[in-house]
Design a protein around this nucleic acid. Structure first.
Length: 1003
RNA sequence: ACUCGAGUGGUGGAAUUGGUAGACACGCAAGACUUAAAAUCUUGUGUCCAUUAGGACGUGCGGGUUCAAGUCCCGCCUCGAGUACCA
């Protein structure tokens, strides 16, 4: 085989790898480990486009590099195979989601008869070094058995603020039994104090109900994001702009009994942990904002003529003397209790109006100020003044206490509210004008504020909290925006809970009976009375059943993905979720690659579960992912054809005829460079454009004439006498399939066959070529700009595609896909191949390499290693290209040089590397070869070509020995012939010499 | 509005700690091979001026620091991403 036959080579080595289990990894406790992980994919039926494997290629390159460096590398892959799309498809087709999921992964034919190649084979053809023996699927009962087990652990835990750790619920029960809850410092709901005697006197149901307030996985009535279209609740991170992230359906607030995870217990640790991990700043920032820590105070205001109190949270307790009213969220429980008889109806009406609005409506109408007075008054704790209590939509039920103390002088929303309802706006800042707007900056000095007068915000806040605590109506408090995570979904295709109910009290299924598998149901829809699909299953449909009924909810998508990276360490263990020794060995993920869209979902939840499992002693690290790289999206390059618009003169007089004539005139498309001239008839045209415009006019004229004549025989003469076909100056751009376009030139024949309506279309082309316009957009079927890896692998091979995707640009960046460029990379591999051949015969020379050869090699080893160390995947390809170009020029076919070159290339182009490696006489896979060592001695030069600049401008170069001192270099430069020319007779003020870098002469 | 990120040839991009801006590739142009096309190879290719020699300008815009700025500092503009009544 003398030419580079990628098909043959790639097939051969893929088979070799599979047969020899080249990528199988074992724990080797004497070897240093490295864990490279990709965010695992949801196996959709649509398959992969070129954007999907980008991150996998990068991680594969890195994994192979680390392995060559001698690390024991764990690099697994699996599927996040529970989820909505499979279930929606199941609802439509009645096919079990397990079946479609399996087809999407393993290939087959879907219900509509489409051939699906399957994720696995698409991944395999890319030559990835995944250890498939460790594959996990979240929907596999053997896997979700342990997801259920972890749920049980979380359920059986509480958060002890004193130890700042999750502990077994047994330690809590012990304390309740001996001392009650008075001294328990736990994260949880506010509960009344009880004694040990009281606890011991309760029955099991009462005790379990109390424990719910403490458990880290708990069942409670909570305000949830209810999405009627999807028939399920959604977590906060699954709602974007008030609609569901998947599908964009409206979401409303609803009070429902739901499972939740007490992630708020970990808010502070999730925040602090960010300092220890290497994520991008923007991602850390997103998590910080999501957690939303704010310091302030919680203050109680007595309600006048009542024993009720309103608790508020404020970050500006220093502005408390500016309080002129209070506002509660409409959903706040206190509202009904304090509303006076007089205002009952108005309040009820307002509440109802608010409840009907979707999340989105409430967000959209930020500018609309609404609210309603309750009739009740609160007592200002310092001044004793009576202040009105209102309810208003701008106060969120879910944040803080669902109530605010309104300080119109210092908060714009309060200011607007006060203005709108005519409430006082007393100024509490010295020398600040608040006639137009509130003053929210923290640099103003307080006034009209009793003991706080003269203080700035910082000291004022401290002083205020001190005083509030002293007088006993509040205390300093830290508040988080982060909410507990809703953990149930009213869906079928998810993990069933290991939970059953007896007398409406939830109990756990014992470990020995796990997993609780999904029962068969007749339909994947809610029941008539609105229960989740699992309620359709009868007792006998459940493999595991206990109590009165099983839990009907299933777990959310993030359950399985929160811990999968641990299961890869020991995927087939049936005794524990993973063996402790293996967990300790593989430890954290050293490099994690995936999209940034998981910033506040998966990446936060898995950090939470990791901390939990660490607290409970199952693992020995708190952060799952040491370093994370977000790969940027590969955008599509869409091509456009421009359809000419025209007038018929009949639009008004005879619209029916107009429509008829339009229907019989085949589309006319104008080439891009002409279209430009059509639209830009303003301003002066350049001479060539002027010429082109002339051409265009002539062509348009001709077609106008042709069309005019063609119509003649097809309509009656009377109508024809009024018919005048004239092009307008406008065109309508239509997407055209990129497979019909080569280098912006449209294949006119194929285009005519593409769609029946284009069969007889006409082109106004340029010298026979129709040039398409283009635009960079997201890849999507509807834009006909999707590039699948399959056709490229077929045409150029996986090695070329791998190199090209890396070559495209920095991994993190968004970049447009340009098919053209792939030729260059393919050429590079062909050139490389040819280095090994002389006159079509494989031939390498055994002798010592030349100094030049060695210099090229070691320069390359150095740069490739450095670049990989800083994850600069794109520049490595350029470096390899330079090396091949240089070796080509040097006519190098030295065995030593080429062997090392092959090892350097192997992470990027493993197939061709294996082939050349074996041709070089090796019997083992190139993946077993050690990374070459850089020898600085090979790069030592005895002369350097100094760029000489004058006043910072480079003028000429001069070759000088490297062992010259600065002074000698200066002397040589000043003596140089060209120097005089640039000095123009002046004497240099100063000469800067940076050895082996630059010389700058200041004149 | 706020937070983060990014603006470099016709295009993707390189320049790692301030030290030759535009590496490497695409595209384009010219040439070689060919009956022709494709493929391949060679040469050129930031812009402007100049026949050449050479010169001027040049990393979004305006300032500054420095012998020297794509890189550092200040102000602004544009684009992208995220968040959005968070008290």
């Amino acid at each position: 085989m003398s030419y580079y036959d990628h098909k043959e080579i790639e097939k051969k080595w893929r088979e070799y790898w599979a047969e020899n289990q080249t990528y199988k990894v074992e724990e080797d406790y004497n070897k240093e480990k490295f864990y490279v992980l990709d965010m695992f994919p949801y196996p959709s039926g649509a398959g992969l486009h070129v954007g999907h494997p980008l991150g996998y290629i990068a991680s594969d390159v890195y994994a192979r590099y680390k392995k060559a460096l001698g690390f024991n590398v764990l690099h697994p892959m699996g599927y996040d195979s529970f989820g909505l799309p499979a279930e929606q498809y199941a609802i439509q087709t009645g096919q079990h989601p397990a079946v479609t999921t399996k087809t999407n992964i393993e290939g087959g034919v879907d219900k509509a008869g489409n051939q699906i190649s399957g994720y696995r084979s698409q991944l395999d053809q890319m030559g990835f070094s995944f250890d498939w023996s460790r594959e996990v699927r979240t929907s596999d009962p053997k896997y979700y058995k342990w997801t259920q087990w972890i749920f049980k652990e979380i359920f059986n835990s509480w958060y002890n603020n004193d130890t700042n750790k999750a502990e077994s619920i047994d330690t809590l029960v012990d304390r309740f039994e001996t001392e009650g809850n008075a001294n328990v410092n736990a994260v949880g709901e506010q509960v009344a104090v009880f004694s040990a005697e009281e606890w011991n006197s309760w029955d099991v149901a009462q005790q379990r109900e109390m424990l719910m307030n403490y458990r880290l996985a708990y069942l409670a009535d909570s305000w949830v994001n209810w999405c009627p279209a999807l028939g399920t609740v959604l977590a906060n991170d699954e709602v974007k702009d008030g609609v569901s992230e998947r599908g964009g359906h409206p979401v409303e607030q609803k009070l429902m009994r739901q499972w939740s995870m007490r992630i708020t217990a970990y808010a502070d640790r999730l925040l602090n942990g960010l300092d220890e991990i290497d994520f991008t700043d923007s991602l850390k920032e997103q998590q910080r904002n999501w957690i939303g820590k704010s310091k302030g105070a919680s203050v109680f205001f007595d309600v006048a003529d009542s024993d009720k109190k309103v608790e508020v949270f404020t970050t500006r307790p220093d502005t408390i003397f500016g309080v002129t009213f209070m506002v509660l969220a409409p959903e706040n429980e206190l509202v009904d209790e304090i509303t006076t008889a007089e205002y009952k109806d108005a309040i009820a009406a307002y509440k109802q109006k608010a409840a009907l609005k979707t999340e989105r409506d409430r967000q959209a109408n930020v500018k609309d100020i609404t609210g309603q007075f309750t009739g009740a008054y609160a007592i200002h704790p310092f001044t004793g003044d009576k202040v009105q209590i209102w309810i208003g939509e701008y106060v969120l039920a879910g944040y803080g206490t669902g109530a605010v103390m309104a300080v119109p002088a210092g908060d714009q929303r309060d200011y607007d509210f006060a203005k709108h309802f005519g409430i006082d706006i007393p100024n509490i800042f010295e020398g600040v004008d608040i006639s137009e707007a509130a003053y929210a900056e923290k640099d103003a000095v307080l006034s009209n504020s009793d003991f706080l007068n003269g203080l700035d915000a910082k000291t004022g806040i401290e002083k205020a909290i001190e005083e509030i605590e002293k007088r006993g109506f509040g205390k300093g408090k830290i508040n988080f925006r982060l909410r507990d995570a809703i953990f149930s979904r009213q869906r079928y295709w998810g993990e069933p809970f290991p939970v059953f109910y007896k007398d409406d009290v939830p109990y756990l299924i014992e470990d020995a009976l796990l997993p609780v598998t999904l029962p068969e149901v007749d339909k994947y829809l809610p029941t008539e009375d609105g229960e989740p699909p699992l309620a359709r299953a009868n007792e006998e449909d459940w493999e595991v059943f206990a109590g009165d009924r099983m839990e009907y909810n299933t777990m959310p998508g993030w359950a399985g993905s929160s811990w999968y990276f641990l299961r890869y360490m020991d995927p087939h263990n049936e005794e524990v979720f993973a063996d402790k020794k293996k967990l300790d060995y593989w430890n954290q993920v050293d490099l994690y690659i995936g999209g940034a869209e998981h910033a506040t979902g998966h990446l936060l939840y898995s950090r939470f579960w990791t901390k939990f499992l660490c607290d409970r002693g199952y693992i020995s690290f708190e952060e799952p992912f040491k370093k994370l790289i977000n790969q940027g999206m590969i955008l599509g390059r869409s091509s456009f054809v421009y359809r000419m618009l025209f007038n018929t003169n009949l639009e008004e007089t005879n619209p029916d005829m107009d429509r008829y004539i339009r229907s019989i005139i085949s589309p006319i498309f104008v080439s891009y460079n002409y279209k430009r001239l059509l639209v830009s008839n303003t301003g002066k045209l350049s001479d060539p454009d002027q010429l082109k415009k002339g051409e265009l006019d002539a062509k348009m004229f001709k077609i106008e004439d042709d069309v005019q004549n063609e119509i003649k025989g097809r309509v009656n003469p009377e109508i024809y006498s009024n018919f005048k076909f004239r092009f307008s100056n406008f065109t309508s751009p239509n997407h055209v399939d990129i497979s019909l376009v080569d280098n912006d030139v449209l294949n006119q024949e194929l285009f005519k066959k593409w769609r029946p309506e284009y069969e007889n279309c006409r082109f106004i082309d340029e010298d026979g070529k129709y040039i398409c316009g283009n635009e960079v957009e997201k890849m999507s079927k509807s834009k006909y700009n999707v590039q699948t890896p399959d056709e490229l692998v077929e045409k150029f091979g996986a090695d070329t595609l791998r190199c090209y995707e890396m070559f495209l640009g920095p991994l993190e960046q968004f970049k447009p896909w340009d098919v053209k460029g792939i030729n260059g990379v393919n050429n590079f591999l062909k050139k490389l191949w040819r280095l090994f051949f002389t006159d079509d015969v494989f031939a390498v020379s055994e002798g010592d390499p030349s100094k030049e050869n060695l210099k090229t090699l070691h320069k390359t080893i150095k740069k490739v290693s450095e670049d990989l160390n800083r994850y600069s995947f794109n520049t490595v390809v350029s470096t390899m290209m330079i090396a091949v170009n240089e070796l080509n020029e040097q006519n190098c076919n030295n065995k030593h040089i080429l062997e090392n070159l092959v090892i350097l290339l192997a992470p990027y182009a493993p197939h061709i590397a294996e082939e050349l490696w074996s041709k070089l006489g090796h019997n083992e896979s190139v993946t077993k070869a050690a990374w070459p060592t850089f020898d600085p001695a090979m790069l030592v030069e005895n002369s350097f070509e100094y760029p000489v600049s004058f006043n910072g401008k480079m003028r000429f170069k001069i070759e000088l020995p490297t062992d010259l001192s600065k002074e000698e270099v200066e002397k040589e430069v000043l003596a140089a012939e060209k120097t005089a020319q640039y000095l123009e007779g002046k004497t240099p003020k100063k000469v800067i010499v940076v050895p082996k870098k630059i010389v700058n002469v200041v004149v």
